[in-house]
Design a protein around this nucleic acid. Structure first.
Lengths: 207, 207
DNA sequence: CACCATACGGAACACTTGTTCCGGATGTCA
DNA sequence: TGACATCCGGAACAAGTGTTCCGTATGGTG
């Protein structure tokens, strides 16, 4: 990304400013989430508005560049976890990391459900990789009995996105987030068959 | 609410318009969520902007009036459920209803966590009632063994708010919502002690 | 019916947002 | 160093927001 659209190398100041814009956007997105304004980015970068638009045709392009980058890093992390061997640790650890990064960067939840993501942008490719990785982990975790068999991707992603959104919006205070996640993850685990012969679990009074 | 601030009865057209505004706001909030604009409400009500501001000093006042009303109806529903006797059914049924209403009305999630709710507004009173009712249900459900003992209000509300937010933002498609909720609720239920003597559950390979 | 406090409508204001545009500055290369 | 393509800054534009204001209309009353 140090080249012109026509292959010419960028001028030194242009390259410098491009980096500044990216770094500033990173900071501002972490502070304000996806509602961060272009003016806030410009100010943080110490740069004019026109400079931003010279490098990124639109706000969405700029933000997606950063989100895609974060997704990419996460996927790399996830692959490392997966390679480590312990699938239960990888599965739950990865989900935890996703929520953690959401909390720090306030910018991931939409990418998980694919909300408002177009088919041809760069985000959707890496988002697909992300989902594929999660699915791999899910399948293997189920095969090894660490996760209930009837958990499917749609509800897994729905719950994950919900957690990320809540965290991004500050609805999960830092000290309750781990407890909430623990409860959520327990719902992912296989239920152990009770001695009770009939009826759905948890729907009976009298201990 | 058919009276002046000074106790005088409202003029007929004023009373009529007030009702129209409330109904329109209901509709528009259900359609657009909390980002609904005052102009949209005015248009839906067939009324001028000034008319809205005559009855509600601010956008927040109007929206909180409606949210408080929805919370009030929900609390009534919840009390009925509680009185029915089956605490497990009441607890999980009530939580389900809250999420359902969130989906229809797109306007509850903030009220649950108390996000941006001031101390002296009308919403916070009923929101407190709501939380108290949930806590009553939680405690009784735990006493009867339908819910795990270590589930506390903060994480319960955090998870509930997350589900509501996700649903309001359309991140939970209608057909996955029940499955996601079922998984979430399973996390609320008591874990049955495994025959395995040591180690954390779900962290072991080999089925 | 006539009066007037009450209520209405919507233009106008102040502000924020994303985006465009262009005169002027600046890096690069002969 | 000079020349010029490249790049920068920020004013300006268009669209949206919540809110205020005031001339006009109207329901209730004597």
């Amino acid at each position: 990304m140090t080249e012109d659209a026509a292959g010419r190398p960028l001028r030194a100041d242009a390259r410098r400013n491009r980096a500044r814009v990216l770094e500033a956007a990173e900071t501002v997105l972490a502070r304000d989430g996806l509602s961060a304004s272009m003016r806030a980015v410009a100010e943080e970068a110490g740069v004019g508005l026109g400079t931003i638009y010279r490098h990124f045709p639109t706000q969405e392009a700029l933000y997606q560049a950063i989100i895609a980058d974060r997704l990419r890093k996460l996927v790399t992390e996830g692959e490392t976890l997966l390679a480590a061997g312990d699938i239960a640790r990888a599965f739950f650890g990865f989900l935890t990391r996703i929520v953690e990064v959401s909390a720090e960067k306030r910018t991931l939840s939409d990418a998980l459900t694919g909300a408002g993501v177009d088919v041809k942008d760069g985000t959707s490719d890496i988002a697909r990789d992300m989902r594929a990785l999660i699915e791999t982990m899910l399948t293997r975790a189920q095969r090894e009995g660490a996760v209930r068999d009837d958990l499917r991707m749609p509800e897994l992603l729905a719950l994950l996105a919900a957690a990320c959104t809540a965290v991004e919006r500050g609805q999960w205070q830092a000290h309750v987030a781990p407890r909430a996640l623990a409860v959520l993850f327990d719902g992912f685990r296989p239920r152990v068959r009770r001695d009770v012969p009939e009826g759905e679990q948890g729907a009976h009074p009298e201990p």
